[in-house]
Each structure stands twice: as C-alpha cells, then as structure tokens.
C-alpha cells in the first residue's frame, strides 16, 4: 500500500483513484506515456528540470525491485479567474517485485517488466493559490463570501472539470494496461502502444 501523504493541507481530495496491477508491463514505456499525458494536459512543462519528481527510491530485493515514486504536479492555466484557481495533482507509485522478463507478442520478442504496480492519484482544486485575496487589504475580509457565494458556481465547475481530467488520466492508465474503461473515446487509445505492444 502506498503510504498516504495528505495533499498539501487539503483534508478532502476532489478526485482520486488507485489502480493496482500485477502482470507484465513496460515500466519505462508506461513512465513516458504518463509523462506525455501530463505534458499534453499542462500539468508539467517541457523542461525536465521543472518536473516535480520529489522521490525516486529503488531497493533491490530477492523477489525483485521495490520502487517508490512521487510526483507533485500543478496546473495553473485554467480559464477565467485563473489566478484564483489551481489544480494540484499528487501521483504516487509503488512497485513490488519488479523483474525484467522477455515476452513474445505477435511473433516478436520484447523486453518487459513483471511485478505489482500500484498507482495512486489524488487531486484537488486549490483556491487562491497566489494569496491574491488573502493578502488584499479589503478582499481578505470577504474571502468566504467570494468563494462560497460570488464564485460558488466557478468553484463547482472547476471541481467537476478536475474530476473529469482525473477520470481521463485513469482511463489512460487503464487503456495502456488493457483494463476495462468507460469513456466513449479511449484516452491515448490510438497513438500509444498497449502493454502487449499492440
């Protein structure tokens, strides 16, 4: 189980999912695929040095490698009132017993990994991330009114949008791992390979 790290000061996430998968996959391809999805959806920039991978730990054990990985991502460019809203996304990976294996798919041999992969994504909408309202001499007294009354619909809309984006991320993971997905159009369905190289 991935150690729960409560999102930065937010007790209740607006969207979350966990996927546990134990079989054959390509860890390096999966890593790149998720990175591409995050880049396409503006959760990170093209510069590798800006990518917030705050933890990568790999321990070699007799039954295979154990890997922990933590990504902390932020999306700020999100439409009107963009200075007042921000999407935060934490992705935690925990892989147990990962070993290199050779698989045959379509008559060809491929190098792949076998292990138990756990992906946990937690996301929430942060209000007033730049403290524009909190630090304004007058607006700070109406912070509750602004978010609970004046911008109530916007807050709700952003939470819905974030939940949809996280569902799409979940579908992208499921599409790669060939698990049952639901969205009418498969996320990353056509362009990227699946786990069995198809």
């Amino acid at each position: 189980m991935v150690e729960r790290i409560l999102p930065r000061g937010m007790p209740d996430p607006d969207a979350k999912f966990t996927i546990v998968y134990k079989d054959v996959y390509s860890w390096s391809y999966f890593y790149k695929l998720l990175h591409e999805w995050l880049l396409d959806n503006k959760y990170c920039s093209e510069k590798d040095e800006d990518f917030k991978e705050i933890l990568f730990e790999q321990v070699e054990r007799p039954f295979g490698a154990e890997i922990w990985l933590r990504w902390r991502l932020t999306k700020s460019d999100i439409g009107p009132y963009k200075e007042l809203f921000q999407y935060d996304l934490d992705i935690n990976f925990h892989i147990l017993g990962q070993k290199e294996v050779e698989v045959v798919s379509g008559g060809k041999k491929y190098k792949a990994d076998k292990g138990e992969l756990e992906i946990e994504a937690i996301a929430w909408v942060t209000l007033d991330p730049k403290k524009k309202i909190k630090e304004h001499w007058l607006a700070k007294h109406f912070e509750d009114f602004i978010f609970k009354v004046f911008l109530k619909k916007k807050v709700k809309q952003h939470k819905k949008q974030l939940a949809y984006e996280i569902q799409r991320l979940q579908e992208a993971v499921k599409t790669y791992l060939k698990l049952e997905a639901y969205l009418p159009e498969r996320e990353l369905g056509e362009y990227y390979q699946k786990r069995d190289q198809t």
């Binding site: 969207a15 979350k16 966990t18 996927i19 546990v20 134990k22 791992l177």
Partner: peptide
C-alpha cells in the same frame, strides 16, 4: 451521473 471508480485492482496469478 458521476460514477467514480476510486480503486481498480487487477492481479494475475
């Protein structure tokens, strides 16, 4: 309308 799937486990044994 909004059916969430917070956990999906698939293990091959």
């Amino acid at each position: 309308d909004d059916v969430q799937e917070p956990s999906y486990k698939h293990k091959v044994g």
